[in-house]
Amino acid sequence: MTGAEHDDAVERARLLLALRQRGIRDRAVMRALEEVPREHFVEPAMRRVAWSDHALPIDCGQTISQPTVVALMTQALEITSAHNVLEVGTGSGYHAAILASIARHVVTLERFRTLARTAALRLRELGFTNVEVVVADGLAGYPAGAPYDRIVLNAALREVPAALFEQLAPEGILVAPVGPPEDTQMLVRYARKGGGLERRDLGPVRFVPMLPGIAAVL
């Protein structure tokens, strides 16, 4: 084991302990967080802190969310190996990899072509064949793959668009950071129950804002 690999192992163990202390008990989520190599999803200059519990910058002015937030969101989704999942906001592809480690199939939407291409390549190289990366406007969802058992949004918005709830399956769960994009948001879990939605607030978070449309250049 090289020095860098040893440091990664130490930081990974420290992170897993922190996750347990934060109340992450889902075994599938913990296994995914342990096994997905986060260092492959960050910029080369950030690799030495890849396993720290912090959000880190990536291309196009976006971020890779801190692991405890990814774990909290994933646990709240209650994913099983039978589920079809929609992720809005691919970013580096890290959260898609976590989701794909548990779910049957993941469709992940990204408005920046550069991020989508890079994430698709990373995921393919790491063997995640059950992920479909699509360049699309996340606010509209992806009707071609609907209905989705689970939907997760990785960017903040004032309210979840009706189009996304329409693509949520009966008994489905949607998790999103809801609130003013320029301020702290509330991480919210919506569960479809019968003909309505049950809302549960999970705690304050801070995400980059969700932008409409497909980026013109990047």
Rank of each mutant, 00 (worst) to 15 (best):
residue 102 I to S: 06
residue 102 I to P: 11
residue 102 I to L: 04
residue 102 I to R: 00
residue 103 A to P: 08
residue 103 A to E: 05
residue 103 A to M: 13
residue 103 A to Q: 09
residue 103 A to H: 12
residue 103 A to V: 13
residue 104 R to L: 06
residue 104 R to W: 08
residue 104 R to A: 08
residue 104 R to I: 03
residue 104 R to C: 07
residue 105 H to V: 01
residue 105 H to W: 05
residue 105 H to N: 03
residue 105 H to I: 02
residue 106 V to A: 00
residue 106 V to F: 02
residue 106 V to P: 00
residue 106 V to C: 11
residue 106 V to D: 00
residue 107 V to F: 15
residue 107 V to L: 01
residue 107 V to P: 02
residue 107 V to T: 08
residue 107 V to H: 12
residue 107 V to K: 04
residue 107 V to A: 07
residue 107 V to Q: 01
residue 107 V to C: 12
residue 108 T to S: 13
residue 108 T to E: 09
residue 108 T to Y: 06
residue 108 T to N: 10
residue 109 L to W: 06
residue 109 L to A: 01
residue 110 E to V: 12
residue 111 R to W: 06
residue 111 R to E: 06
residue 111 R to N: 12
residue 111 R to A: 14
residue 111 R to M: 14
residue 112 F to H: 15
residue 112 F to M: 10
residue 112 F to S: 15
residue 112 F to D: 12
residue 112 F to G: 06
residue 112 F to P: 11
residue 113 R to I: 07
residue 113 R to S: 12
residue 114 T to L: 15
residue 114 T to I: 14
residue 114 T to P: 14
residue 114 T to R: 15
residue 115 L to V: 05
residue 115 L to E: 03
residue 115 L to Q: 08
residue 116 A to W: 01
residue 116 A to C: 10
residue 116 A to M: 06
residue 117 R to G: 01
residue 117 R to W: 02
residue 117 R to K: 08
residue 117 R to N: 12
residue 117 R to E: 13
residue 117 R to S: 10
residue 117 R to P: 01
residue 117 R to D: 09
residue 118 T to L: 15
residue 118 T to W: 02
residue 118 T to Y: 10
residue 118 T to R: 15
residue 118 T to G: 11
residue 118 T to P: 00
residue 118 T to H: 09
residue 119 A to N: 12
residue 119 A to R: 15
residue 119 A to V: 15
residue 119 A to I: 14
residue 119 A to S: 12
residue 119 A to H: 14
residue 119 A to E: 06
residue 119 A to D: 11
residue 120 A to V: 09
residue 120 A to P: 08
residue 120 A to I: 14
residue 120 A to S: 14
residue 120 A to H: 07
residue 121 L to I: 13
residue 121 L to H: 15
residue 121 L to N: 11
residue 121 L to Y: 10
residue 122 R to T: 11
residue 122 R to M: 07
residue 122 R to G: 06
residue 122 R to N: 09
residue 122 R to L: 01
residue 123 L to I: 09
residue 123 L to E: 07
residue 123 L to S: 11
residue 123 L to W: 05
residue 124 R to L: 13
residue 124 R to I: 04
residue 124 R to P: 00
residue 124 R to D: 11
residue 124 R to E: 13
residue 126 L to W: 01
residue 126 L to Q: 09
residue 126 L to Y: 04
residue 126 L to K: 02
residue 126 L to H: 07
residue 126 L to C: 04
residue 126 L to E: 09
residue 126 L to T: 02
residue 127 G to D: 03
residue 127 G to C: 03
residue 127 G to I: 07
residue 128 F to K: 10
residue 128 F to G: 07
residue 128 F to M: 06
residue 128 F to A: 07
residue 129 T to M: 14
residue 129 T to P: 01
residue 130 N to H: 06
residue 130 N to M: 00
residue 130 N to W: 00
residue 130 N to F: 04
residue 130 N to I: 02
residue 130 N to R: 05
residue 131 V to F: 01
residue 131 V to S: 00
residue 131 V to I: 13
residue 131 V to H: 00
residue 131 V to M: 06
residue 131 V to A: 01
